[in-house]
Amino acid sequence: MRIRKASLLFFLGPALLVVALFYIIPLFLSVYISFTPMVDWNVNRYLTQFIGLQNYERLFHIVMYDPDMRAVVITTVVFVLVTLIINVFGGLLLALATYFMDEKMSATYQGLWLLPRMTPIAVYSLLWYYFFHSSGIGILNSILLKLHLIDHPIALGLDPKYLPWGAWFIIIFVNGLVGVSYGMIIFYSAFKSIPKELIIAARVDGASTTRIIKHILLPLTKWHFTFVTVWQMFSLLMTYAQTFLLVEWRVVDSTWGQTWALYVFRTAFTTTKDQGLAAAASTFLSIIGIVLGIVALKALGYEKMILEPKGDI
């Protein structure tokens, strides 16, 4: 028994160490910092000061009374909800489209949709920086100008005339384009794992492609749907990299283009450098994420899906 424990520790040790070092410790540190008045990374001075729930009270106060913070909350809700729908259903549509294509075509097509994911975040964001740039050299502007749809360049993500929709459109578009490929890959491989005979049988029974999708493909990939939805919801709640660059490069408005995750990052590192408040906001976001995750799994019937089979295996 002792040998077993020793070998367990030996094999699991390295992985546990990595998890502890990069996930567990930072998590506790972050929660801990939310109870200190840390600003400007002045660790020596503030790390030992405990101020209880003061940061949370401040956060609550800001949310209640600061219109900019209200914008962050609304933007987060809109961003996560809309992008989630685009990611999940867009991914589903792409997977269906590629499933019914012939192999070669579908590989090329999927490759194209994976490009945004394979491109470094900075390069990808730079692309959209040029695309949405508010001057006449912006690709979107020059197209619209050529088509005479506008007579002078517009700042879609900045001009108060278009806010909040312009900023929302850009961050949802840019993040959605990266996100769909994830659902596409998962759903496509799920469809591919369904025995071909099932599809043939349904065809022989007279099922149209729509019927096959509705009665065979979708019901048999329920679990993948749940997984992609919950997973994408988490990553949308936490993502900020592309949006951060677009805000920093002045493509989208810093208020209406800012999600909660980005607010955390900017508060800690660029704007007020108020790490105590940022830590409180990030802890709060994590709690929201966990709650939403559990609700989503319940709503999508996760428990029913992992029930043990009743018959012989």
Partner: peptide
């Protein structure tokens, strides 16, 4: 004609029953 229009019944080696 499609399989449905030919009105054929097909039984597979792995039965291909719809599991859900």
């Amino acid at each position: 004609l499609t399989p449905a229009e030919r009105n054929v019944g097909l039984v597979f080696q792995n039965y291909a029953l719809y599991p859900h």
